[in-house]
């Protein structure tokens, strides 16, 4: 709980919690790290949306990004798992407890290198969770090696020149049948928050690849994952707004031709005002094309790239009971003595 001592009553959200209730420990990441601004966005969004901390869990892999769950939502259970293995832990936790809201935090090394296999299979199973990649194109904790999302031809102080093409996490997600794929930039708080809210309302795996510059090892113009590059080259696909299910949607009639509305599973809406690209995020082919184009032109496109509400999620495939199976007790879990006798009769 917070230690607020001033007499002024602190503001609370719709479940009666203060912003402080969503904060975590002080960050031990480098000053100015993009990951810290992502943590701040998560705190704001969790507060705004009134997420119940006890039903929210944070799961991460290993790396700078994966440390960050310690710095937000301190009241929630958190699991800093193994390098590249967050998806399997999240899958198991969700299979056990379907009422949890899962925030997965990963990095580019964690997702695109050591964890690429588990990432793809998480998407394939459509485990309902928010999957954030804090993508800086570099290994920070081991002091500056290229990751698999580093740009081709990019140079780093110790690692030299990267000769290999990058893995595009959003592209991998779309072809991996992920139904919510977005990219944003840690230096764009409004867009990050809007996308986070929409992603949390989505039922299924929602991937947000957040370009989150590494101020220590990868913050120079030759990298598309730096602040200067992001600021200069970010091309927003849409102007986004998120409308919670309890608020009425109001859109100017005359603007309709340039807007697209998408309703999410919990009844909330996301509205997209098309910018010059005219991108339709419900079009699989367009989504793939726009990412490939951006990669060849070295553009940083941000926004909601792809959305599809029709993929079956983990729980509907498993056909489990409505309550969390982890909450079931002996009477539901241990079949009767008679049933064992019946089965043994068939073994004689």
């Amino acid at each position: 709980m917070s230690d607020v001592t001033n007499t002024k009553a602190a503001k609370t959200n719709n479940i009666g919690l203060e912003k402080n209730d969503y904060k975590g420990l002080p960050s031990t990441l480098c000053k100015g790290c993009g990951h810290d601004s992502v943590s701040a966005r998560i705190i704001n969004v969790a507060y705004d949306m009134g997420l119940p901390p006890h039903r929210t869990i944070k799961i991460s892999g290993i790396g700078c990004s994966s440390k960050s769950p310690a710095y937000f939502l301190g009241r929630s259970h958190s699991f800093n798992a193994l390098h590249g293995r967050m998806p399997s832990v999240a899958t198991g936790a969700m299979a056990a407890h379907r009422d949890l809201l899962t925030i997965g935090i990963s990095g580019d090394g964690d997702t695109a290198s050591i964890g690429l296999g588990q990432f793809k299979h998480l998407l394939r199973r459509n485990v309902p969770m928010l999957y954030i990649v804090e993508n800086n194109g570099v290994y920070g904790l081991t002091k500056g090696q290229f990751s698999a999302t580093a740009d081709e031809g990019q140079t780093l102080k110790y690692a030299g020149v990267n000769e290999l093409p990058p893995i595009d996490i959003c592209l991998e997600a779309i072809v991996g049948n992920c139904g919510f794929v977005a990219r944003s930039f840690a230096g764009d708080p409004r867009q990050v928050e809007t996308l986070l809210k929409a992603a949390i309302s989505y039922k299924g795996t929602a991937v947000i690849d957040i370009i989150s510059p590494c101020v220590t090892f990868n913050n120079h113009l030759s990298s598309t994952k730096s602040y200067p590059f992001g600021k200069d080259h970010e091309i927003q696909l849409q102007e986004l707004s998120y409308i919670p299910h309890y608020e009425e949607i109001t859109i100017d009639e005359y603007d309709d031709g340039t807007r697209k509305k998408v309703q999410l599973h919990d009844g909330s809406w996301i509205t997209l005002k098309k910018l010059e690209k005219g991108h339709d995020p419900t079009d699989f082919g367009q989504a793939v094309n726009i990412l490939q184009e951006a990669q060849s032109k070295k553009e940083l496109i941000t926004g909601l790239i792809y959305i599809n509400n029709n993929y079956k999620d983990l729980h509907s495939v498993l056909g489990t009971v409505d309550q969390p199976i982890s909450s079931l007790q002996e009477k539901d879990l241990r079949p009767s003595r008679e049933s064992l006798e019946d089965i043994m009769a068939g073994m004689r």
């Binding site: 198991g92 299979a95 407890h97 588990q118 498993l318």
Partner: peptide
């Protein structure tokens, strides 16, 4: 079902899921 059975992509993921589930109370 009062259970979930998942055929994992490999043994790393199989035990990872079990650990995640055990942590969550399964």
């Amino acid at each position: 079902s009062t259970y979930a059975v998942i055929q994992a992509e490999d043994e790393l993921a199989a035990i990872g899921m079990c650990v995640g589930a055990g942590w969550a109370g399964a």
